[in-house]
């Protein structure tokens, strides 16, 4: 199932929005952190895991999801949040720790929650997989529409939760799709030196579900694999696993010197940057002309600028508010 023209344009605009968002976050992140890098300082303190390069995964999968479908994501989730339709202004404000943020500054960039679009993420590897099974079970038990998608990294495929969740989902035939964003690196440790199989998609067979592998960060192939598996889940045929070869164009977190990368790896990855590739595809296949591309870029930039301005202008909540929201 090929994406329609309007879907392709949405995918491109969303990829641009995500990338431009990350680029401005990266710039602001260093405010107050030079000359000496100390992550405690600046308007965006703490850790920052950028999604640059991984945009095709987010748009290829989320193109098939409605507001009511559930997504669980990881510490590196800005692209997925944007593609799932998380309120960008409130997301930016959360990353700044402001009162207008998604959770008023309590969660920050690793804990983005937007109940309006059923999106949540967590900083503990693979631990969104069980909750995704639970959301899928809830829909199944209540005979309600909707699927759950759990995004994880390739490092998470070596966690117990991965294996337990695949078994449970298949056993109970849950409407859930597990998506591995394989960017090749778990912090500084390569997939080859941490994983006993070359392809994590083969692990699906051990749990009685289909496993798909999509190579080279291809947004169209991702769209197709996601479409097939999500449709399967919606039809009540059970879960699937998709492994996607993607690329982390940034460090594990900002400030990561990336000395562990083989020489030339980053250059080779930048040469395969999916954003210009996607605009070229739109042009080559006649879905958009230069002017239309420029307009999509401008729309993306405008949304990002508005979100950042909203975050900058928002206030911090009164500090005693920190003590609220512990219980319902």
């Amino acid at each position: 199932m090929k994406p329609s023209k309007s879907t392709l344009l949405w995918m491109y605009e969303t990829m641009e929005t995500s990338r431009r968002f990350e680029e401005i976050i990266a710039k602001i992140y260093f405010e107050g952190k030079t000359p000496a890098f100390n992550m405690t300082n600046g308007p965006i303190p703490g850790e920052m895991h950028l999604s640059n390069g991984q945009e095709p995964v987010a748009v290829g999968v989320c193109a098939h999801l409605a507001k009511g479908d559930v997504v669980t994501a990881t510490h590196r989730s800005h692209h997925q949040a944007i593609a799932k339709g998380v309120d960008l202004n409130r997301m930016a404000a959360e990353i700044f720790g402001k009162e207008t943020g998604l959770s008023g500054g309590r969660g920050g960039h690793m804990h983005l929650f937007d109940a309006n679009v059923n999106f949540g993420c967590s900083g503990i590897i693979a631990q969104g997989m069980g909750p995704a099974c639970g959301a899928a079970l809830s829909r199944k038990l209540r005979n309600q529409a909707g699927v759950a998608v759990s995004f994880i990294g390739e490092g998470a495929a070596n966690q117990g939760a991965f294996h337990e969740s695949l078994n449970l989902a298949a056993l109970w035939k849950l409407p859930v799709v597990f998506v591995i964003e394989d960017n090749g690196w778990g912090v500084s440790v390569s997939k080859e030196s941490s994983t006993s199989v070359e392809r994590n998609s083969v692990r699906a067979a051990g749990y009685g579900m289909p496993g798909h592998f999509v190579e080279d960060n291809d947004p169209i192939a991702i769209y197709e694999a996601a479409g097939e598996t999500i449709a399967r889940a919606r039809e009540g045929k059970g879960p699937s696993l998709i492994e996607i070869e993607t690329y982390r164009l940034a460090g594990h977190f900002m400030g990561d010197a990336e000395g562990y990368r083989p020489e030339g790896e980053k250059d080779a990855l930048f040469a395969k940057d999916p954003i210009p590739q996607m605009s070229k595809l739109l042009l080559d296949e006649g879905h958009a002309d230069e002017a239309a591309i420029a307009e999509l870029q401008a729309t993306a930039q405008r949304r990002v600028d508005e979100a950042i301005a909203f975050a900058r202008e928002s206030e911090y909540a009164p500090e005693e508010e920190a003590l609220t929201s512990v219980f319902a």
């Binding site: 303190p45 959360e94 720790g97 500054g105 309590r106 804990h111 005693e320 512990v326």
Partner: peptide, 14 residues
């Protein structure tokens, strides 16, 4: 205090 540790710097420092 008996709360999950908040992200926002001024919350946390408080």
């Amino acid at each position: 205090p008996d709360i999950p540790i908040p992200f926002s710097r001024h919350f946390e420092q408080f």
